[in-house]
Design a protein around this nucleic acid. Structure first.
Lengths: 237, 237
DNA sequence: CGACGCTTTGAGGAGATTCAAGACACGTGG
DNA sequence: CCACGTGTCTTGAATCTCCTCAAAGCGTCG
C-alpha cells in the first residue's frame, strides 16, 4: 500500500524536509538510500499517549517528524521529572541503548508523527555502513552535551532558567524553519517548571514578569518574543 | 622498549585488571586483541594537570587506569562547573565526539595513569569490527544515563545529594575491587559542592552532621562509612 | 453551561547562600 | 624540628530566593 503511493506522495528520508536535522544529516546520499528502506514511517500518537515506556525493552531509535514530546524519568517517589523536550527532527530512544531497556518514558505533548528505526535494522545498517554508526554515536553524544548544558543552567537563578528555556526553544524552532519569535508553547507551566527544576508558580510569576517588562507576550499558549536580545541579556550577565 | 618488557610485565588490555569495566567489557576475546594493539598506554598526569582542555580538538577516547579526575565545564562567567568525577576503569572524552572539539576540560585530582585510543584508530576499529562501535555507543549512552540520574538528584535536598554522592562513590569503588566502606575522598568540599550544585559550606555542614549521627567518620580526606544503610535511608524516603 | 484543569496571585516559611572569622592541615624554609 | 604561611575546612549569623499552601480567575471541552 505505501508503495502504491510512493511515486507521488510518500515521504521518504530522501525528500523529507527534516533530512538536514534527522539521522540523514551527515550521511552520504547513497547511505540515506539504505536508511529509507528500513525505516517505519507514519507512526502516530495522540496528546498524552506514550511513544515508549520506562522499563520496556529497547526496540530502536525514534525520529520525530511533527509535533512535540517530553522525555520523562521518575524519582523513587514516583514523581515525574522532565528530562528533555523533543521537537521535530530530533531523535529519541538513546536512554535505552546502554541497558537495552528504556529508563525514560516518552510522551506526546500534542499529536505526533514519527519514524522508527528498529533494532535489528540498526545492527544490519551498522555492519554494511560504518558512517551510519558514526552518525549515531555523534547524536548520542549530542544528548550528553545537552544534559551538560542543563547542568550549567541548574546553577542559575529561576529567572535565568526561564529566559534560557524560552530562547532555546526559539532557536531550535528557527533551525527547523519555523518562526523564532512567535510559536505555540505546547507544554504546561507545570511541565516547564518540572524541566527547569522550579515550581510551576515560579514559572508563572517569571513569565508574567517578562510580560510586564515587554520582553514577551503570551496569550493562552501562544508566545510572542518581543525582544529576544533583552531576553538573552538575563543570562549573559 | 615496551615490547622488550611485554613478555613479563607489560599490561595490555587482555590482562589489565580493569578489563571488566573498561572498553573490553562486552567485547569478544579476539576483539580485545585488536584493541590492545592500538591503545597508547601509560600516559601520566600529576594532580591539577589537564588531560584535555575545553575547546581543543577531539583526539580520541581516554580510559583511566589509576587515580581519579574531574570533568569540568564553564559557565559564561568563567566559573568551573564539575560535570562528573571519573574513577579507574571509566572512560573520558565523549564530550568531544559530537562537534569533534571538547566542550569540557578533564583535570587529574591526583596522579593519574591513563590509556588513550586515538581518533584514527577508532575509525579503523569501527570498520573492521562492528561490535566495537556498538560498545562505544553503549558507553556514550551510559554517560547520558548518568546525567539523567544527576538531574533527578538535583531535585532533592542538599542532605540527600550528599548522601547519594557518598554512596555512589562507595558503589563505584566496590565494583573496582576497592573497599566500599573506607576510602580517600580525593576531591575538595569545594569540588563536591560544585558537582552537587550546593555551596561548599553546606557540604561541610552536612558531612559533619552525618558524623554526629555516626553514619560516617572523616579524618583529613580519609572517609569511613559506618552505616551505609542509614546513609541511603536519607534518599529512600 | 458547567466542570475540570491550568494559570495566576498572595502570604508565610524553610532551606540554602553569602559573608565573615576562626581552626586546622600541609608543605616550606629557617 | 619547629615556625610560618597558604589553602582548605568549619562554624555562626543574617539574608534571600524560592517553595508551599491557599484561593481565586480563566479557558477549554464535553
Amino acid at each position: 500500500m505505501p508503495n502504491a503511493l510512493a511515486t507521488k506522495t510518500a515521504v521518504t528520508c530522501e525528500n523529507c524536509n527534516l533530512d538536514k536535522l534527522c539521522i540523514p544529516k551527515g550521511l552520504k546520499r547513497s547511505d540515506v538510500g539504505d536508511l529509507k528502506l528500513v525505516v517505519n514511517r507514519n507512526n502516530i500518537r495522540q496528546k498524552g499517549e506514550a511513544i515508549y515506556h520506562a522499563g520496556s525493552p529497547f526496540r530502536g531509535i525514534v525520529a520525530l517528524r511533527s509535533g512535540s514530546a517530553k522525555l520523562l524519568s521518575f524519582d523513587r517517589s514516583g514523581n515525574e521529572v522532565v528530562v528533555e523536550f523533543i521537537l521535530p527532527g530530533e531523535l529519541l530512544g538513546f536512554d535505552g541503548v546502554s541497558s537495552q531497556r528504556h529508563n525514560c518514558t516518552a510522551v506526546a505533548l500534542e499529536t505526533v508523527n514519527f519514524c522508527h528505526l528498529p533494532t535489528y535494522q540498526l545492527e544490519a545498517l551498522t555492519i554494511n555502513n560504518p558512517s551510519f554508526h558514526q552518525v549515531l554515536l555523534q547524536r548520542s553524544c549530542n544528548q550528553f552535551d545537552s544534559q551538560i548544558q542543563k547542568t550549567l543552567l541548574s546553577r542559575r537563578s529561576a529567572e535565568e532558567r526561564v529566559a534560557v528555556f524560552l530562547a532555546n526553544i526559539s532557536d531550535r524552532l528557527k533551525v527547523r524553519g519555523y518562526s523564532e519569535l512567535a510559536f505555540r508553547l505546547s507544554m504546561s507551566r507545570e511541565e516547564i517548571g518540572n524541566y527547569l527544576g522550579i515550581a510551576h508558580e515560579t514559572v508563572s510569576r517569571i513569565v508574567n514578569h517578562f510580560q510586564s517588562l515587554e520582553i514577551i507576550e503570551i496569550k493562552a499558549k501562544q508566545l510572542k518574543i518581543l525582544d529576544k536580545k533583552k531576553l538573552l541579556s538575563f543570562y549573559q550577565e
